[in-house]
Amino acid sequence: MSDYNFAYLDEQTKRMIRRAILKGLAVPGYQVPFASREMPMPYGWGTGGVQVSAATLTPEDTLKVIDQGADDTTNAVSIRKFFENTAGVATTEETEKASVIQTRHRIPEAELSEDQILVYQVPIPEPLRFLEPRETETRKMHALQEYGLMHVKLYEDISQHGAIATSYAYPVKVAGRYVTDPSPIPKFDNPKMNMAAIQLFGAGREQRIYAVPPYTEVVSLDFEDFPFEASKADHPCDLCAAEDSYLDEVILDDAGNRMFVCSDTDYCRSRRDAGHMGRLSEEAA
């Protein structure tokens, strides 16, 4: 077993990533540079999240991987298989049974506990990038807490659309200091970032790691006259009748019939298993 790298990465690489994670936890929301490694999967497949998970996993962990809330997409399945093979960890689709959850674009509906770690795959870690393309400048803006431009952009939304149009990757302020990108989660998920679990963020191509410790204040940017609202569907899930979950729209036929189902497949299944029935439960069964 001596030439076998636990969780794929060599020890020196894991140490470098681990040191970045610790600094990330010590300065919540601040983007720590790290030397991202080539992974046996293309960028866009969560190489940043995979490297953070690899540095975090122990053989005793149970891993769950979700992609837009679902455990069974190609991306989620391949990452799960990758860690089954390289780290020998157990895997699960049940949120409650997972000790480490790697996610792309969603936070599970079930409340996470102190014993869990949520690892986000992040495409663009810099929330100010669309305002300022130069890294040297965005670094300065964070250093000086120069976040006025971000507020101007959000306020322009309000004057043009009557509301803040940003519905994904809605910027947050972490622990009252750094404006941070929550990754492309729907803004529906933003309030959940105030959680008991440890949140780690990995951006592979952009070579950044950041973190939010448990119980850290995470505030979605807003205005006194336009307070932040987590968008909520105005109808229940058609399969499990949940009224508190984020829904995906599914086109059913050419006639334009649609249904709305929980994006979190494990949440929806566990509700159906518990006997909850939605508008289309009969047809779907």
């Binding site: 969780a7 020890e11 894991k14 681990r18 610790l22 010590a26 975090t56 122990t58 440890i198 410790p213």
Partner: peptide, 13 residues
């Protein structure tokens, strides 16, 4: 080292 790191990370968190 994976066990020690997990403890050290949890402690820092």
């Amino acid at each position: 080292s994976s066990h020690v790191f997990r403890a050290a990370m949890t402690a820092m968190a």
